[in-house]
Design a protein around this nucleic acid. Sequence first.
DNA 1: CAAATATAAGTAAACGTTTATTTACTTATG
DNA 2: CATAAGTAAATAAACGTTTACTTATATTTG
Lengths: 198, 198
Amino acid sequence: MRPKNLGKEEAIRTIALQIIAEEGLENLSMQKLAKAAGISPRTIYIKYNDKDDLLVKLYVDVVLSEYEKAILKGFNSEMNFAEGIKKLWLNGFEYLKNNKPYFALIQYGKSSPLLNKAYQKRDIKQGDFFGPIISFLDRNMQAGIIKKFPHDVYRALLFSPILELINEYFDYTERPQQIITDEVILACCEAITKGVTL
Amino acid sequence: MRPKNLGKEEAIRTIALQIIAEEGLENLSMQKLAKAAGISPRTIYIKYNDKDDLLVKLYVDVVLSEYEKAILKGFNSEMNFAEGIKKLWLNGFEYLKNNKPYFALIQYGKSSPLLNKAYQKRDIKQGDFFGPIISFLDRNMQAGIIKKFPHDVYRALLFSPILELINEYFDYTERPQQIITDEVILACCEAITKGVTL
DNA sequence: CAAATATAAGTAAACGTTTATTTACTTATG
DNA sequence: CATAAGTAAATAAACGTTTACTTATATTTG
């Protein structure tokens, strides 16, 4: 039996993310993807059931899963609150500013109904996806170090600003001077931390 | 000369936003829109040059323009910092939770390259779009009441959390209990305000 | 003051293109 | 040599947009 060419699977994923980042999710077609990857459209269907399956797997299994691995690197739920948040912010900034295609799909995850639903479905099943962050927050809430809010509220408070700052980082790569520097990220992180600390 | 039927123009806009909110921007087609609005596809082209023109006008002239009118209602740049931010947050929450289609397109504005670019182009030209908020921030920075950050950084710090909370508000409308209440919004607003205050 | 006219608004149906996906076939290797 | 991986080409459906035509009304004319 002829063996799978793993390089082709890799090419599909990489080039799909590239097209999404450069032209938008709405401009990714199976035929364009196949041509850009130098393969036949049929080959995509050997590896994925259909277009939705490809997109959901790209989003959940590739982008979100690697993103979370990256932001949790060197983090553990026993860390001091300010240090923990700082670690998560710097990890996120460092990772996403060097992986624009990943960031682009994360942004689409907030608007596209397909990706939105896919994430919710998997998130419930998985549970330990953002596990360390959840126990980190729980511990700090219980210890009276930070205000008591639901996890989803903390996600909005602590992590939506850093994603928006990364969005601006990419906007500013097309302008004469970058304003979203490590210093700005750190200052913002401190502001957010101060805001939720009791 | 036969006069324009303004009701049809209204229907195009309303139903387009509806389809985008319910099925996503990627599932809005001119033929689907025409059918749903009970008109011929040609009629859309009397009022808009092409699909991109329709989407950009929907986004900039309808959604963003009305959204900004709504959040600036009762706000002026001379307000006390905490009161001003509170007003903007409550206005935004009240308006968007009752106008889901508007919120949906605002979310797409962050990922879709078409809408992204359209906004930037117009924003530069217009200038006074978010004008009162910009002078509000400038005044408070100059007075040493809040930390010094570029406007774009303040947008991320002050307003991305409320948008994310509204996103969660809509998620929770499909669950047994709503957790994003006025009280939660106010508590979050206070946390954010505290974070940036000197 | 009505009938005729000019004209943009609007329609139904079609245009060529692109879409996601499949069919029929070829290729590489355990 | 069996078999799944892979290809080239085709499929029907949907896409954005246009063509050829009809309709409604503000204005002009008798």
